[in-house]
Write a protein that binds this DNA or RNA. Structure first.
Lengths: 173, 173
DNA sequence: CAATAGTGGTTACAATTGAAACCAATCTTA
DNA sequence: TAAGATTGGTTTCAATTGTAACCACTATTG
């Protein structure tokens, strides 16, 4: 066999605390994996709720959530606010317009831009969804102590910043 | 115009701590949203790394990660271990076989089952990926204190359990 | 030992998503 | 002010994913 497995490029010396056997990986403890499973479970549950009650996808709901707080945004501004991409926004918007949940009006100053807003119907739906969303969040948060909630908040910020770095600086190594 | 937009939906009185105005939702503070953004950032970065170096998708990598630790599993057992679904496993497996990363052999006792294992090549790749994965994890965890890591661990467990409940018991309300 | 139900796994098809090309309008600058 | 570069947004096409139907086999039952 020609596997040259010398100098494991992982372990330095001994690993004080949570050393796994160097050449093995426990998926169920692997943070990226756990985040993914958790996020999918949560998102799927909520997506089901939204679609069952309001026939809304998550991207569409996100657009409404932003427009509810910040009227008169353009699609590009939605991109900034949501971390969703252009195309996703464009599609969500066109569905929402078809449903009469939002309105689109030309910006006379810049005729490329289109100004988006919740319609009356849209605001109505928005106001019914917000409590539902909050209920889900409260339910989730309900499993944590106040302290843990604060911890989680700051931990997420830190992880997010680190992951953002990756995207900027390119891959590790 | 019949929009009854009374009761300013922007400011209530003063905001104690994290009280949002009841009828509004701040997406950037909404846990499901944050989880989703975080998880996507992390997964995408890692997926890029895997695909660039080993031409592996995340599902395929997950299958290998499990087979590396637990040889001789069937596809159904992989489903249990990974929380991925049947079809995803089936597809990942067929790609891995095409790449000669895993082998598939008939189970004579039950001719429906197929026993999967890393091939030599597969184990080779596995052993080179594990450190890479661990590097990503260490880098992420590096932004947290030891204490925070423990907190995160237990918080994730709790949230996961709650989200799991939703799936079992059906939607809220 | 049929007939039926259940399991392991794949296939087929539809819906979702992402990347890149694209159109139209605006900005820059020479 | 014409030429190219940018920006806002949509469309197209390919890849990924999810759902349901499906095939082969095994287990159950009468």
């Amino acid at each position: 066999m020609t596997i040259d497995n010398t100098k494991s490029d992982t372990t330095e010396f001994s690993d004080p605390i949570d050393a796994v056997r160097p050449d093995d990986l426990r998926l169920e403890k692997f943070l990226p994996y756990r985040l993914s499973v958790l996020s999918n479970r949560v998102s799927n549950a909520i997506a089901d709720a939204y679609s069952a009650r309001f026939d809304l996808t998550i991207p569409a709901w996100r657009v409404m959530a932003i427009l509810g707080r910040f009227p008169n945004l353009s699609a590009a501004e939605l991109v900034e606010q949501t971390a969703m991409d252009k195309v996703a926004i464009s599609r969500a918007v066109s569905i929402l317009i078809k449903n009469d949940y939002i309105t689109r009006s030309e910006d006379l100053a810049d005729r490329r831009r289109q100004v988006l807003n919740l319609s009356e119907l849209g605001r109505d739906v928005y106001e019914r969804i917000v409590p539902l969303a909050q209920q889900y969040e409260n339910d989730l948060m309900g499993s944590l102590s106040t302290e843990e909630r604060n911890q989680l908040d700051s931990i997420i910020e830190k992880l997010m910043a680190r992951a953002q770095d990756w995207a900027n600086r390119g891959l590790i190594d």
